[in-house]
């Protein structure tokens, strides 16, 4: 173990400060007792947290985003696992093309994707539907899941499958009992990143969501377009707190390095 150079320490802490400072400001602002955003402020209160409960639409959007993220991430996993197994383990015609297509939502600007999906949905007569919103989110989060599951599949020893088969396992039994459990670290990491990405997605959702299906980021975006008050800071603070709790729980249970690194 060599000692970390002092300059690296300084850089590290500057970087952390850079990342955390805006969050800290938002959290502090949310405790103001004023009706407008100001910082620093003199009187502290919880009135803006109380205000959240009177805004039923925000609560509804929160649950919608939660369900949407979970559904989109789960559907993406269901699609990404077989796709990753095929891509990581087999050579077939158009393999590279398939991979490029599945990863392409990462490369496209969200606004382009939003317009394109809106066009498609209106063609199908599905504009404003929940199914359309779920499908759109699934497409966007699929690359994240695919990448982590491919990484897990690439490190898989095929002799394990052969051993299972030689012991009498059908192809399905070998998948369920041996292959799938070996891919779980990649799947879990992929699911979490997919969920967070979907929960956070704004640009594309602006096009795809409707009055009945407004996700939390879209609701917040619409809100600040009209009003600027500390309500959004309070909502953000709640989200930051929830995220922090989730991260700590995950780290305690599995270790964040393991989940997000996609390693076994």
């Amino acid at each position: 173990m060599s000692r970390t150079p002092i300059a690296l320490h300084i850089f590290h802490w500057l970087f952390v400060l850079f990342m955390v400072a805006p969050l800290a400001v938002v959290v502090l602002v949310s405790f103001t007792d004023k009706g407008y955003i100001s910082f620093p402020f003199d009187g502290a209160s919880l009135r803006w947290f109380q205000a959240i409960w009177n805004q039923k639409s925000f609560i509804d959007s929160f649950w919608l985003s939660l369900a949407l993220g979970a559904t989109a991430a789960t559907l993406a996993v269901v699609l990404a696992v077989p796709a990753a197994m095929a891509i990581a383990w087999h050579r077939f015609p158009a393999r590279d093309l398939a991979l490029a297509l599945l990863m392409s939502p990462l490369m496209l600007p969200a606004i382009v994707l939003g317009i394109a999906i809106l066009r498609l949905l209106s063609h199908l007569g599905m504009t404003g539907s929940l199914a359309g919103l779920v499908a759109a989110h699934m497409v966007v989060v699929l690359p994240y899941v695919l990448r982590l599951v491919i990484a897990a599949a690439a490190g898989y020893d095929h002799a394990l499958s052969q051993a299972a088969r030689s012991l009498g396992a059908s192809a399905w039994a070998a998948f369920r009992r041996i292959e799938l459990p070996q891919l779980v670290p990649g799947i879990a990491g992929g699911w979490i990143i997919a969920f967070v990405t979907s929960f956070d997605e704004l640009t594309m959702s602006i096009f795809v969501s409707s009055a009945g299906t407004t996700t939390l980021p879209v609701r917040m975006y619409n809100y600040i377009a009209n009003t600027i008050d500390p309500l959004l800071a309070a909502i953000s603070t709640v989200l930051i707190a929830l995220t922090l709790v989730l991260m700590i729980v995950l780290d305690r249970l599995f270790g964040l390095d393991r989940i997000l690194g996609g390693k076994a």
Partner: peptide, 18 residues
Amino acid sequence: PSKRGLGIVFQSYALFPH
């Protein structure tokens, strides 16, 4: 291979890690 009823020992042993 699953119907042949042969026992195989692989070079890497291929033990199921989980």
